[in-house]
Design a protein around this nucleic acid. Structure first.
Length: 309
DNA sequence: AACAATTGCAACCGCGTTTAA
DNA sequence: CTTAAACGCGGTTGCAATTGT
């Protein structure tokens, strides 16, 4: 037995809205509000429309400050980065773009951005719907309970300091060191675009000419080095703000899952051996400034949990 | 010019979640 | 606590406009 229909389909108008219908709906809501009941709204106004249809029309077209078309490059970047991070959570993505609706962004993605990105897939659909709640649960992130917006995440609990001692540091080159992480399943910030092209083994590689340190654009830097043979890549430590930590953790997680790269029990980190750990950090989508800190923070997540469950 | 294919987007559908009785 | 109604979201569809042959 299915759910009861929200309205009498035989007695409601469907299809495109007329200017008169728009005017009625807009005028009524501006003067009286929705009354918290969309289903009852059409009757009050005298519209032969389904309540859900009224809601959609208002949210997507009639409410104030709605923007249509003309997506900026910055908006492209935000959409792409969030899509790679959290998948098709259009309402969350729309919440980051004032004036944009989830429907608009969804259409824009499906018709424009997806093609430009060459068909890159979002995170594992099995896992990603719970990514935010999982991160909150397992890393004690505190969120504003009234908001699902990523920007409200409290990042303070998302960082930890790695105990680096002389015993687990290995010197490889004059300018490079590596060391082992002490705990299993801690994955790191892995920015594929940090990888020198010579160390990133690529398959079906058709475009590796662009320097990874160029100012990244979504179409130039993103996934440029993918797919990577995971036996042959080196993790570069990023030193970054806590805000960046979360953004990158989410993006890197998405990429790990997309690529099937699951963190093993130990990780090698390579960075430059100065008194301050510094590393160039180019996110696939988000350009970020260089940060230098006397000690670095490392956000971690349980890759096994996210990737395998 | 005619037709087919493709594109872009508004609107609908169905289902999971939330709310209120 | 239970359950039905309503909400909100993401996926899909339908169709007009545009482009290609």
């Amino acid at each position: 037995m299915g759910r009861a229909p929200c309205c009498d389909k035989a007695n409601v108008k469907r299809g495109p809205w007329s200017p008169e219908e728009d005017a009625k709906l807009k005028s009524y809501i501006e003067h009286h509000g929705t009354g918290g009941n969309w289903i009852a709204l059409p009757n009050k106004i005298g519209l032969k429309r389904c309540g859900k249809s009224c809601r959609l029309r208002w949210l997507n077209y009639l409410r104030p400050n709605i923007k249509h078309g003309g997506f900026s490059e910055e908006e492209d970047n935000i959409i792409c980065s969030l899509y790679v991070s959290i998948g098709s959570r259009w309402s969350i993505i729309a919440a980051q773009l004032p004036g944009r609706t989830d429907n608009d962004i969804k259409n824009y993605w499906n018709t424009k951005l997806k093609k430009k990105l060459g068909g890159k897939q979002p995170p594992n659909q099995v896992s990603h719907p719970n990514i935010l709640s999982s991160m909150q649960t397992h890393h004690h992130l505190i969120t504003d309970p009234t908001s699902t917006s990523i920007s409200h995440l409290n990042l303070n609990a998302c960082t930890t300091q790695l105990p680096i001692s002389p015993t687990n540091i290995n010197h490889h080159h004059d300018d490079m060191i590596s060391f082992q992480l002490p705990q299993p399943h801690h994955s790191l910030f892995i920015n594929s675009t940090n990888l020198p092209s010579s160390s990133a083994t690529t398959e079906n590689n058709t475009n590796t000419n662009t320097s990874s340190h160029d100012s990244p654009t979504i179409f130039q830097a993103a996934f440029q080095s993918f797919p990577i043979n995971h036996h042959d890549f080196t993790h570069f430590v990023d030193v970054k703000t806590e805000q960046q930590v979360l953004e990158d953790a989410m993006l890197d997680l998405a990429m790990d899952m997309d690529l099937g790269i699951i963190m093993s029990s130990t990780q090698t980190i390579t960075t430059s051996p100065s008194s301050h750990i510094t590393s160039q950090s180019h996110h696939p989508f988000i350009s970020q400034t260089q940060t230098i800190m006397p000690q670095f923070h490392c956000a971690f997540h349980d890759a096994t949990y996210f990737g395998m469950q």
